[in-house]
Simulated assay, not measured.
Amino acid sequence: MSDPLLTLRGVHTHIGPYHILQGVDLEVPRGGVTVLLGRNGAGKTTTLRTIMGLWQVREGLIQFDGAQIHQETTPVIAQREIAFVPEDMGIFTDLTVHENMLLAARSGVLEEERLSWIFGLFPPLKTFWHSAAGVLSGGQKQMLAVARAIVEPRKLILIDEPTKGLAPAIINAMVVALKELKEMQTTILLVEQNFSMASAVGDTVAVMDDGRIVYKGDMCELAADAALQERLMGLSLEAHQ
């Protein structure tokens, strides 16, 4: 990893009367996985949505790959090869798996070699290729949500709690997928409550509290320091395993 691909400097975000992000400073290095941790309501999802332009920056700046993007619209940000997997997955349940994937391909064409790679990561998608996405299980829907984000090469993928409520076997499939993306030099910003999963894939970590980043460092250091986990989170992250 080298210089940051994504940088947030003093970012403030308001949602209605609520001041959610209160001066967020965050760097996401190129070619690795940065994990964003924190209690519920700390501002993690708002950070991802602000990066994507779904919530507007009131103050501060966001820089991606050398360009300031905090005043751009969501479609323009997406065109910069940034993909977002929201917590609610954002799939179209009335459309088939195939149609969901086709919509996610900006070129309108599904490249066979990449599709074969995705099927290797998430075999159920091939099985249900012509079925409505609504018939998939929760874990299979999450597979589809991630597959849509990686249907074409992206510079940055933002993923919001991809393993929430999933069975261990599906979590393992997510870990494999993220590791393979990392090997392909894809940069990932991951919000995740499952610390076992987060520590398995994360290179760097940032912890949020009350709309601010309160800790930044290497994931291996946080994973090895139970006292630091308790100080930052108010409980041992081992409890999340």
Rank of each mutant, 00 (worst) to 15 (best):
residue 5 L to D: 13
residue 6 L to Y: 13
residue 7 T to P: 13
residue 13 T to C: 12
residue 17 P to Q: 14
residue 39 R to I: 00
residue 41 G to H: 07
residue 43 G to N: 02
residue 45 T to E: 03
residue 45 T to A: 01
residue 46 T to C: 05
residue 47 T to Y: 04
residue 48 L to V: 06
residue 50 T to P: 09
residue 51 I to D: 06
residue 54 L to N: 10
residue 54 L to A: 10
residue 55 W to R: 13
residue 60 G to R: 12
residue 60 G to V: 02
residue 64 F to K: 11
residue 67 A to V: 10
residue 73 T to I: 12
residue 76 V to G: 00
residue 81 E to R: 14
residue 82 I to S: 04
residue 83 A to C: 09
residue 85 V to Q: 07
residue 86 P to N: 11
residue 87 E to Q: 15
residue 89 M to V: 09
residue 91 I to Y: 01
residue 91 I to E: 04
residue 94 D to R: 15
residue 96 T to W: 15
residue 101 M to D: 03
residue 110 L to K: 12
residue 116 S to Q: 15
residue 121 L to V: 07
residue 121 L to R: 11
residue 123 P to D: 05
residue 130 H to F: 07
residue 131 S to E: 06
residue 133 A to Q: 07
residue 134 G to W: 13
residue 135 V to D: 08
residue 143 M to P: 01
residue 151 V to I: 13
residue 158 L to Y: 08
residue 161 E to W: 07
residue 169 A to R: 14
residue 171 I to N: 07
residue 176 V to F: 10
residue 177 A to R: 01
residue 178 L to P: 01
residue 183 E to Q: 13
residue 185 Q to A: 13
residue 186 T to Y: 02
residue 195 F to N: 08
residue 201 V to C: 04
residue 203 D to Y: 03
residue 203 D to M: 02
residue 205 V to D: 02
residue 212 R to D: 13
residue 221 E to L: 04
residue 227 A to H: 14
residue 236 S to T: 05
residue 237 L to H: 14
residue 238 E to R: 14
residue 241 Q to D: 09
